[in-house]
Design a protein around this nucleic acid. Structure first.
Length: 426
RNA sequence: GGAGGGAUAGCAUAACUGGUAAUGCACCGGUCUUGAAAACCGGCGCCUUCGGGCUUGGGGGUUCGAGUCCCCCUCCCUCCGCCA
């Protein structure tokens, strides 16, 4: 949610920012509704002022045992007028909020301008893609040959785009979750949190998924709870409608959750394997910090996520998303992409965003600043990392000609000492 | 699922038969001071066209006027039932 006052006072600044993201949000309609509502609020306030004054007189008259009937009748009419105005204001407010919630965030000045994802900018690269003296195969093929991944039966149990893991495959997921959580809590100072895996609509609205992208998620009937698409939603909403103490900032959480996404509109993309699935595991990093610190914290958060890949010896690059590719809620975003040998390209494995006040305004998360006034906090988050895609990266980058897969050295303690995955004896 | 109790500002506590939210602590600014504490003054939730208006978990209703009376909902607590 952007600052309405900014829109009111500098509409052109907002307009240019939204043009940079190729947004079609109707700012004029919102501005018109806003000024109409403000006019009505002013009129209602004047009437309330009158009613407050006259009510006080009625009380005095009654105390003096004088007849207040005429005044009471007058005030009845004023009360009806106020009620009518209030109903109009409420309706106007709903229209305003509906439009307001659809307006994306304003990109930060350091975000590269662009027309499409083609204009994203590579910021840095780490590691060298491995050379193979054989043709590397996909993680799906590797996993099935090793007997640790079973997409056919996953489809039987549930449907397309689900994963079923056995033995070392299942252990690998669990090991990565533990490895990532330990790294972020012990070395990067995050507090581990295990949130609910279902959330309500207010939480989805708070972080920006609702109402604009409501079709992208799984909703449980009849309660209408939503399966979390990312831990960002439950964890950011921990402090919804709260005012945080300045001394506690920044607050840093690391959370493991499964993530559930409908992946509507991605038919035909990544149909095989576990790159794009309806349910995957992820360790998410979430920060709440003071506005003046959020860009420094954003860089740090990105480095925290990168370190996972470095310790796992997986080559990657960091991309700064351009204005056209930025998610609606983000002011700035880095994607981290891991090298995927079978596709001979880098694929997204983490997305690290600074939302500035956008989510805080929606979720009403504030902190008490040094001057004593409550201010909107800045929220950030990033995958640290997507576990399923990390499994993909390990299987593919560490594959051997004989079909076995080495386990990165730093992960072995979490793999019960296993150094290499060999075919499972079913 | 059933029965009962509760929700007031960051926290804690008030508000006769309805009369327009009081007080303490914490915090911020100021006065005073070498500095600090104490004391005192102001602020301490939101909006404002700067006149004011709104705010007692949320939403309706009654009333000239609702923290207070009525209805619905949410959450928390206690007990019963069910359950991993």
């Amino acid at each position: 949610m952007i600052d309405l006052k900014l829109l009111r006072e500098s509409p052109d600044v907002v307009r240019r920012a939204l043009e940079a993201r190729r947004s079609q949000a109707d700012l004029d309609a919102l501005l018109k509704l806003d000024s109409e509502k403000r006019e009505m609020v002013f009129r209602a306030d004047e009437l309330r002022k009158k009613r407050n004054e006259e009510s006080e007189r009625i009380a005095q008259m009654k105390k003096a045992r004088a007849d207040a009937t005429a005044l009471i009748n007058d005030m009845r009419a004023v009360g009806e007028h106020i009620s009518a105005l209030e109903a109009e204001i409420k309706q106007k407010d709903e229209e305003i909020r509906a439009r307001w919630l659809m307006i994306p965030n304003i990109p930060h000045e350091t975000v590269p301008p662009g027309k499409s994802e083609e204009d994203n900018v590579e910021v840095r690269r780490w590691g060298v893609p491995p050379e193979f003296d054989f043709e590397p195969i996909s993680h799906a093929d590797i996993g099935e040959k090793l007997g640790i991944l079973d997409f056919e039966r996953a489809a039987k149990i549930t449907g397309a785009r689900f994963t079923l893991s056995y033995g070392a495959g299942a252990l690998l997921e669990r090991a990565l979750i533990g490895f990532m959580l330990d790294l972020h809590t012990k070395r990067h100072g995050y507090t581990e949190v295990l949130p609910p895996f279902m959330v309500n609509k207010d939480s989805m609205t708070g972080t920006g998924q609702f109402p604009k992208f409501a079709g992208d998620y799984f909703v449980c009937q009849p309660d209408e709870y939503i399966l979390v698409p990312t831990a960002e939603v439950p964890v950011t909403n921990i402090y919804r409608d709260e005012i945080l103490d300045d001394a506690r900032l920044p607050i840093k959480f690391a959370a493991y959750t499964p993530c559930f996404r409908r992946e509507a509109g991605s038919y035909g993309k990544d149909t095989r394997g576990m790159i794009r699935v309806h349910q995957f595991n992820k360790v998410e990093l979430v920060k709440f910090c003071r506005p003046e610190e959020s860009y420094e914290e954003h860089e740090k958060l990105t480095r925290d996520a990168e370190e996972v890949l470095q310790l796992l010896e997986i080559p990657y690059r960091v991309i700064a998303l351009c204005t056209a590719d930025l998610g609606d809620a983000a002011a700035k975003c880095y994607d981290i992409e891991a090298w995927i040998p079978s596709q001979k390209t880098y694929r997204e494995i983490s997305s690290c965003s600074n939302f500035e006040e956008y989510q805080a305004r929606r979720a009403n998360i504030r902190y008490r600043a040094k001057n004593g006034k409550p201010r909107f906090i800045h929220t950030l988050n990033g995958s640290g990392l997507a576990v399923g895609r990390t499994v993909v990266a390990i299987l593919e980058n560490f594959q051997k000609a004989d079909g076995t897969v080495d386990i990165p050295v730093n992960l072995r303690p979490y793999m019960n000492g296993i150094e290499r995955i060999t075919p499972r004896q079913a």
